[in-house]
Design a protein around this nucleic acid. Structure first.
Lengths: 202, 202
DNA sequence: TTTTGACCTTATTAATAAAAAAGTCAGAAA
DNA sequence: TTTCTGACTTTTTTATTAATAAGGTCAAAA
């Protein structure tokens, strides 16, 4: 049983390598199997279909993300600094897993099934919860003032995601944004975040 | 010469009707000609190709938009109220001309030529100028404080456009967003605008 | 319990033919 | 001379089909 979980992890890691390099749709189950020097039916022994493998990949990535976010949490006491750190964490993941198109409109051609879309949606809801919690702490501290905590948190995250979305589709001639493009996005988000937080102050 | 301009206007208006209803790509030059009870070569007498007709359409729409914005300008003295009015004006145009996809990433499949893309970009730059002017007035009045006027104005408009972009692609199962979707976008934008402005206050 | 070669089925891609739309031009109408 | 048109050509899009590739299964072996 423990061995089984280990094998699953190995497969997921192999899949991630292919996915991040060539994208989900351009990666075949055979290629993943060959990379690991196993046969295709072996893969299907651990994952009933490609979708569930993708789901496993997404789960792993989001687990890593939430862990990284969690590590940042207790670091600093200032709302602005905490959120800036969160943005940087998200940015690292965005850059690393860009080819999977987990962000933007969330529903890329990569995600065929509704199950996958719903799952990504759920992950985003968890992200909102975490951010709402941070905002709540700042409210308690008397740092900021919000009417509807959840609504404002969603608006905050959506405004940041919107920046990404626009920047990505603006320069969509290239398959993958340049280092510079990524940097521009990050700086815009940090700037917007600062203004947004200041706008919530009493 | 005056007659020629009038004919051009008539053709543009006919094209707008088709474009807003079926989209640019699903409208043929023959259909536009038939609607106006003229032959296709007549159209080509006034516009050398379809692109230039599209350009004429875009020009007219943006002229109307800037005129509507201009009418709102002197109305109120408060920055927040002025920007709210601007958002509502833009929203009306966004709704009315949604099928042309002038907003979002600006470069839709509708715009084949680079010329059209550049033109829309120019129109957006003018929009930034107008907004920057409004911000500048508020700076002079001591209402707000901005380090880089143009950068902040662009960030402001981009954050609003990002909201639209995300909302549109989120519910892209339907060809056209529902009345409710439009309303949600408007309210999010107004809310974000308020917070953003407050975040610029001293 | 885990793995595989051989197999089947479904989805993607490639090639080609058919249809439609963009664009032209000589000449007619105003 | 300016504006307009029927008839035409060229280019693009769409539909059809064949070929290939990828997803997925199963009996049997390790």
């Amino acid at each position: 049983m423990l061995e089984t979980d280990k094998k699953r992890e190995l497969i997921i890691e192999g899949a991630i390598k292919r996915f991040t390099h060539f994208g989900i749709n351009k990666t075949t189950m055979n290629e993943i199997a060959d990379d690991l020097s196993v046969s295709k039916p072996s893969l299907y022994y651990y994952f009933p279909d490609k979708s569930s493998l993708i789901l496993g990949v997404i789960n792993k990535i989001f687990d890593d993300y939430f862990e990284a976010i969690h590590k940042e949490k207790p670091a600093i006491n200032s709302l602005e600094a905490t959120l800036a750190n969160f943005i940087e964490v998200k940015h690292r993941f965005f850059q690393k897993y860009y080819m999977l198109h987990l962000s933007s409109g969330s529903n890329d051609a990569s995600f065929n099934s509704d199950e996958l879309k719903n799952h990504v949606t759920k992950m985003k809801e968890r992200d909102v919860e975490i951010h709402a919690h941070i905002f709540q702490a700042a409210v308690v501290q008397g740092d900021i003032e919000v009417s509807d905590l959840n609504k404002i948190t969603e608006l905050y995250l959506e405004s940041l995601a919107g920046i990404t979305s626009l920047c990505v589709m603006h320069g969509y001639k290239e398959l993958i944004p340049s280092k510079k493009d990524f940097k521009v996005i990050l700086e815009k988000q940090l700037s917007l975040s600062r203004i947004f937080i200041k706008g919530l102050r009493k």
